[in-house]
Design a binder for these strands. Structure first.
Lengths: 337, 337
DNA sequence: TTGTACGCGTTATCAA
DNA sequence: TTGATAACGCGTACAA
C-alpha cells in the first residue's frame, strides 16, 4: 500500500503542512522537526504524487524535452544530458521524441503544455528555430531554453557550441597539414549549425589565402547516405580533393564508407574530418579527425540554465575540442602546393 | 487563458460530469448532447489536465517505457514505436532512458510509479529480465508488457522476434552459399537473444552436418569494438573463416571495419552477416547480409498489447526477414568443401 | 515555527 | 440519460 503525506505526518507527529515544508525545503522548520519528518519519509518510503503537486501548487516538477531530429545518437545524447541534470533537481524529464512532426508540431506542443503543465521546456534543433512554437511558448509564459538555436536569439536563453570556431580551427589544421584542396559537405540547410560550420570553413580558407572552390562544396542532409553520395561525387572529380571535411558525424561516416568502397586508404591517401555530434563518432570511426562536440554536456548545461533562469536572456557557450587521429605522416601532398 | 472542463460544460449547457462522459467515451450520452459537447471542446481547444485526471480517476493516461540500453538506435526505435501507438490512444509516453542504472533500478522504477502512476509499463532488454523489477511490478499490480524477454516468460505478456529462427535461417543460407567455416560472434551474455541466436546458429550447423568449431566462436559485447576485436582474432587464425555471422548489428559493423582495415574485400573474399537490430544497419552497411528485425514495429506491438491486455499471459511473435546483399557470385569456396 | 481550511481539475458515487 | 457532490493528495493563504 502506497503512503501519502498524511501517513508521513501521522508517523512524524506533525501536520501535513509541516511535511510539505520539509519536502519543498522551505525555511522555518526546526532542525529536529525536519529530522523527524525526514526519518518518517524514509521509513515509509514516501514519494509525493506528481499529479497532486501539479494540481495543488505552482510547479509540476516536470521538464519537457522537445526533439524532432532523425539522428538517434543526437536524441539519445540530449535525453541523457537533460535527464542527468533533472535527476539532481528531483524533477522528471518528459522526453518528447517527435519524428518529423511538421505541421502538427504546434498542436503537439499545445497539448503537451495543457496536459502536463511542465515547469519549463528545452528545445533542440530544428525546433529551436520554429517561430510559431517560440511565440506560442512566450505567449503562454512558459520558461524555455534552446540548444544551439540559429535565429531569434533574443527570444530565450540558449546554450551553444562554437560551430564556426570549431570548423575554422579544423580547416586551419587541415591547411597546416599541407592540404589545399579541402572539400566541405554542408549539412541540412534547415539547421543553423550547417551555415555556421560552413562559414568557419570559408573564413579559414580566406585567412590562409586558399581560394574557395565551389566545386569542392556539396550539399548534404546530415545523414550517412548524403555524406556517402557527396563523397562519391567529390572523389569522381577530375581533380579530387585531398581532404574532405564533413559538416556532421553521420556524413563523415558516409564519406569514409565511400572511400573504403573505392579502396582509398584513409588517412594516408585522403583525410576525412568531421564533427562528433553525439560523443559516438569517436568510437565508431577511429580514423577520423573530429571536432568533439559535447552534446550530452550541452543538454546538461541547457537543463542547468533552465533551473537557474532569471528574467533576462542568458547565453552560454561550451568549448569544443579538436581530436586528431591522423597518421603521423602527412597525407599525400596537395597537387598544387 | 486555458479552459477547464467547467468552461466546456457551461459552453455546452451541460454538467461537468456529462463533459467527462464524452471525454472518456462512456455510454449513455445522447448523440446530440455528445455532439454539443464535442463542439464546445473543439471551440475552446480544451485539453484535460493529466494531473487532475490522475488524481481523481483510476487512470493516468500515461504509459512508461523503461530502457536501460547503451544503443541509441535501439532506444530511438523503441521510443518511436511506443509513442506512435500511444498517440492513437491519446496516452502520453513517459520515456525513461536510464543508462546503466544497475542497483538503483528498483528505486528508480519505484519512484516512477509512485510519482506518475502510469497505467502500464513497457520493459525493454535487459530490464525485461531483471527479476526484482518484475516482482515489484507484479506486487504493485502494475500491468506491464515485455519486449523480447529471455527468462520468466510466464510473468507477463510479451512480444518477441524469432531470434533462433532468424539465426537458423541465416546460417542455413550461408551454408547453402557454400560456406563451411562460418564464425559466430556471440552477443553480451546478459541478453537472452544472444543465446537464442547462438542456438539457431548451432542447430543449423548440426542439421547441415557441418561440425561446430569452437575456435570460430567468439564472445562479444554487442558493440562495435567487441565485434572489431573478435573479427581481428578470427581473421588471424591459421585457417580463418570464410564467413562471419555477428550476433548484433554493431558487432557486424565492427567486423566489417576490421575486414576493411585488413584490405579484405567484403563480400567477395569474406561474407559478413548480421542482424539489423534497429532498422539502421541496412542503411549504414550495404555490404552486409542481415536479418531485419523490425524493432520499431516490435515496440508498437508491445504498446498495442498493453492496451488490449486481458487477464491471461499473452505472447506475440513478429516475423523476421532475411535481407541478402551478397554479391551475385558466391564467395571464395571454403577450403575444405 | 507550526497548524487549519480551502482549492486545484478531474473522475467516482449515487441519486434523479 | 443526466446531474450534484464527495473525493483524490498535495500546495497555498492565512491564522495561531
Amino acid at each position: 500500500m502506497r503512503s501519502t503525506i498524511k501517513d508521513v505526518a501521522t508517523a512524524a507527529g506533525v501536520s501535513v503542512k509541516t511535511v510539505s515544508r520539509v519536502l519543498n525545503k522551505e525555511r522555518y522548520v526546526r532542525p529536529d522537526t525536519r529530522l523527524r519528518v525526514e526519518r518518517a519519509v524514509e521509513a515509509l518510503n514516501f514519494r509525493p504524487s506528481i499529479a497532486a503537486r501539479t494540481l495543488g501548487g505552482r510547479r509540476s516538477f516536470q521538464v519537457a524535452l522537445l526533439c524532432d531530429n532523425p539522428n538517434p545518437y543526437f536524441v539519445y545524447a540530449m535525453q541523457e544530458g537533460v535527464r542527468a541534470r533533472c535527476a539532481v533537481e528531483n524533477v522528471r524529464m518528459i522526453a518528447q521524441p517527435y519524428s518529423m512532426a511538421g505541421d502538427d508540431l504546434l498542436d503537439l506542443v499545445g497539448r503537451l503544455i495543457d496536459e502536463t503543465r511542465p515547469d519549463g521546456l528545452i528545445l533542440t534543433p530544428p525546433i529551436t528555430d520554429c517561430l510559431p512554437v517560440l511565440e506560442f511558448l512566450t505567449e503562454q509564459q512558459m520558461p524555455f531554453v534552446r540548444i544551439s538555436p540559429g535565429t531569434n536569439l533574443a527570444l530565450s536563453s540558449s546554450v551553444f557550441i562554437d560551430n564556426k570556431g570549431a570548423a575554422h580551427a579544423m580547416t586551419a589544421k587541415l591547411i597546416a597539414m599541407g592540404h589545399r584542396r579541402i572539400a566541405f559537405i554542408v549539412g541540412d540547410s534547415g539547421y543553423a549549425s550547417s551555415n555556421q560550420r560552413f562559414t568557419g570553413y570559408v573564413e579559414a580558407l580566406n585567412e590562409a589565402g586558399v581560394g574557395l572552390d565551389l566545386e569542392l562544396v556539396r550539399q548534404g542532409r546530415f545523414d550517412f547516405r548524403s555524406g556517402a553520395q557527396a563523397a562519391a561525387e567529390l572523389l569522381s572529380l577530375p581533380r579530387p580533393p585531398t581532404a574532405i571535411f564533413a559538416g556532421s558525424d553521420d556524413m563523415a561516416a558516409g564519406a569514409l564508407a565511400t572511400a573504403h568502397d573505392r579502396g582509398i586508404v584513409v588517412p594516408d591517401d585522403l583525410s576525412i574530418a568531421g564533427f562528433d555530434d553525439s560523443d559516438v563518432a569517436s568510437i565508431v570511426w577511429p580514423p577520423l579527425t573530429t571536432v568533439r562536440q559535447p552534446m550530452r554536456d550541452l543538454a546538461y548545461a541547457a537543463a542547468d540554465l533552465l533551473f537557474k533562469l532569471g528574467d533576462g536572456v542568458e547565453r552560454r557557450e561550451l568549448p569544443f575540442e579538436l581530436i586528431l587521429r591522423q597518421s603521423a605522416a602527412p597525407p599525400r601532398p596537395a597537387e598544387d602546393s
